[in-house]
Amino acid sequence: MRAPVGVILAGGQARRMGGGDKGRLPLGGVPILTRVIARLEPQVAGLALNANGDPDRFDDLGLDVLPDSVADHPGPLAGVLAGLDWAAEQGADHIVTAAADTPFFPCDLVPMLQLAAERAGAPIALAATMEGTRQVRHPVFGLWPVALREDLRLAIAAGTRKVVIWTGRHGAVEAVFPVERFDPFFNVNTPDDLARAHSFLDAP
């Protein structure tokens, strides 16, 4: 499998954080989004940002900014579709997505997703962790084939909004990542979450 391109999903409206770009919030003096870029960029062949609104506010990042092509903020699948369309223009076969508000995701995200897909012969792989005996999926973190972009476009147009519903139709598999001090896919949705993220930085 060729190296995929990466797409950071920042198309949400951040209502629980009071609006704005959550990825711009400082965490240990560094914007969360900068931390996300630093983790994903070395793992992929190219990188873009899915975000809506004025793209000029991200000029400092030097990334292509991909708005949703579907109106009314239908959720992360719209960001995945925008990423797949961009990847097709780049001549890429796959994208790997990551959330813009998740600063601690694994530095081996991409190879682990690729390995899970290859072992199962599956087109899509999603990240997961274990909570005791229960497997928890993190479907915003996934490996997606460009070949399914038209299928996804039709599914969104037909009203599909939940990632796991569409991925389930295509036999998606999970790449299970270890949990050590905290879940590596912990994301910052609220001011309390941001405080917890700072505590994770401060812990030994």
Rank of each mutant, 00 (worst) to 15 (best):
N187V: 00
V163N: 10
L109S: 01
R57A: 00
V140T: 14
E180G: 00
R149P: 01
V179C: 10
A3T: 13
P111W: 12
A3K: 13
R181F: 01
A78D: 14
V80H: 08
T160V: 15
V164F: 06
P76A: 11
P31G: 14
R35A: 07
P55S: 01
V44F: 12
A78I: 10
V80C: 11
P103D: 03
A3M: 02
A10R: 03
P26V: 02
V5L: 07
P123D: 05
D183S: 03
L81G: 05
D72Q: 15
V176D: 09
A3P: 02
R24P: 02
G62I: 05
R161T: 15
G121L: 05
G75N: 02
G91T: 13
R16C: 08
R57T: 01
A127E: 09
L154M: 06
L113M: 06
A78V: 09
T129W: 03
L81T: 12
W144L: 11
T97S: 15
V140N: 11
T129V: 15
H198V: 07
H94W: 09
G28E: 07
M112G: 13
A155Y: 14
R169S: 14
G19H: 07
A87K: 10
A172S: 14
V146E: 13
P76D: 07
R149I: 12
L109A: 03
G159Y: 14
C107Y: 04
A71S: 08
G142R: 08
G83D: 06
R169T: 12
A172N: 15
T190Q: 01
A172V: 06
V176Q: 05
P42Q: 12
G75A: 14
G159P: 14
G18Q: 04
V65Y: 00
